[in-house]
């Protein structure tokens, strides 16, 4: 007989209730089980109406981020055992309107992601027939870390700025902009700079680094923001001191 733990899960059914509540479930603990396995146990055995998102169960699809005991984590990569004796409180990610139970509305994030033009921008595209753009392993290493973002939004949930300044374009989107800015094949840094500088809040980021702390893929969005600030500052002074340098 395995031990059990109490999972306190946030419930919110907008058709039935106006305020979220917490519901407790007794869930068995097995050494291999993640928080997500506990939620699946609830859904399959105890209450089929519990709603949450998940897909790959291997930490790469980015669907299953939630607050567990107040901390944003991937529920498929957090062992239940590590949180014994409990209770384990599971809530939707902070910073996103709750649609239902543990499901947040990520429309805002999707818009911000698209806004930073996260694709290769070039003056002239080489015909495919001419083969690949050469890119040395060192050039790849320049941006590789920022290309590892799985869009799980844990960083938004941890970000103190995003909470008070919803216009803030946010850690993952800035990291993604930097991913392309630093790619040797790309020429779109200026366009992205223009986009980023139009958005509020970047200068408010105090670089406390909570985003990088919770990132499950070590993308280091705080580092990306720091690099962005430096290049934006240089860009600003260049445009003031050397206006002829700005195209």
């Amino acid at each position: 007989m395995s031990d059990t733990v109490t999972m306190e899960v946030l419930r919110y059914r907008p058709e039935e209730e106006t305020e979220p509540t917490y519901e407790s479930f007794e869930v068995p603990v097995q050494p291999e089980w993640m928080i997500l396995d506990g939620l699946n146990h609830i859904k399959d055995q105890l209450d089929g109406s519990l709603s949450y998102r998940w897909a790959c169960r291997m930490g790469v699809c980015g669907s299953c981020g939630m607050l567990v005991n107040g901390r944003p984590v991937l529920t498929c990569a957090t062992y239940m055992e590590s949180l014994l004796p409990g209770p384990i409180r599971v809530e939707p990610l902070r910073g996103f309107p709750v649609i239902r139970d543990l499901v947040g509305d990520i429309t805002d994030f999707m818009g911000k992601l698209a806004a930073v033009k996260p694709y290769i921008v070039r003056e002239e595209e080489k015909p495919v027939e001419e083969g690949e753009y050469l890119q040395t392993p060192e050039e790849l290493a320049e941006y590789k870390q920022y290309s590892m973002c799985i869009n799980c939004m844990l960083c938004y949930s941890a970000c103190p700025i995003y909470r008070i300044e919803p216009d803030f374009i946010g850690p993952a989107a800035i990291a993604l902009a930097q991913r392309y800015n630093l790619d040797s094949r790309d020429e779109g840094a200026q366009e992205r700079m223009d986009v980023l500088s139009q958005h509020a809040g970047i200068w408010g980021c105090t670089l406390v680094g909570e985003c990088s702390e919770v990132c499950p893929k070590d993308v280091d969005p705080a580092g990306a923001i720091q690099r962005y600030k430096v290049s934006a500052t240089v860009d600003f002074f260049k445009s003031v001191l050397m206006p002829w340098r700005k195209e």
Binding site: Y119, I120, V128, E132, Q135, T136, L140, Y143, D183
Partner: peptide, 13 residues
Amino acid sequence: EHWGCPWSRQPDG
């Protein structure tokens, strides 16, 4: 590759 996929590279790129 032209669309930005970060393929692993040989030393010459």
